[in-house]
Nucleic acid binder design. Structure first.
Lengths: 103, 103
DNA sequence: TATTCATATGAGATACTTTTCATATGAGAA
DNA sequence: TTCTCATATGAAAAGTATCTCATATGAATA
């Protein structure tokens, strides 16, 4: 997201989720809030990569954070994320039986 | 989306929406189902560009289509899309007041 | 206030998506 | 069975995001 873009457009929101690292972060934070290091161990993803992704997610308030000592604990905005994931799960049950793989 | 990817991952779903052309298509089809040409006029977007985007959206069953004469009429999968857009709208009302622009 | 742990940031390289344009296919009418 | 309208497709070019790595910042403690 290098260009200056209006936050009002839906696709900005989706861009922030359209990436494996970010959806992995979301899945992990669904279980419990975690620091960057904890996420790094849990997901086996390098620290700065996580920080970059977390900055994006935070910009759109899809995650929040609070400083505890040296650590910064990230938490999921469950109010927004969980219902969306639920809709996608239902969509997939209905529509994605035949489509296991995408070219 | 060139590589072969599992459709189960959430980010595949979001990728399909993380683009202005696609969200514009969605907004247009929210009002009424349309052929490619109608969309092209309505949105002032070139035909082949629309076809490419529509193919992606259709792959994930976010739109459907039916052939009528020479025309192919595309329609929105409202059951999935509308509730998601609603959640995003609510999210933005709450969270995006200060964030008009994104670098 | 130097050191260490924890996280963030910048910039170049890499990878991926989207656009563009030329062309192919498909459906119906002449 | 050709012509025309409507849409789809492929491949190269253009645009954009992500990754990587080196380094900066920030918080706490010795």
């Amino acid at each position: 997201m290098r260009t200056r873009l209006r936050c009002e457009a839906y696709h900005i929101f989706f861009k922030n989720l359209a990436n494996g690292v970010k959806t992995d972060i979301i899945s992990a934070l669904k279980k419990k809030s975690m620091s960057v290091n904890e996420l790094s161990k849990e997901l086996d993803i390098e620290q700065s990569k996580l920080s970059h992704s977390l900055a994006n997610l935070k910009f759109c308030n899809l995650v929040g954070s609070k400083q505890i000592g040296k650590k910064r604990i990230y938490s999921l905005n469950k109010k927004t994320i969980l219902p969306i994931l639920k809709i996608i799960d239902q969509h997939r049950e209905k529509n994605c039986e035949g489509c296991k793989l995408k070219k």
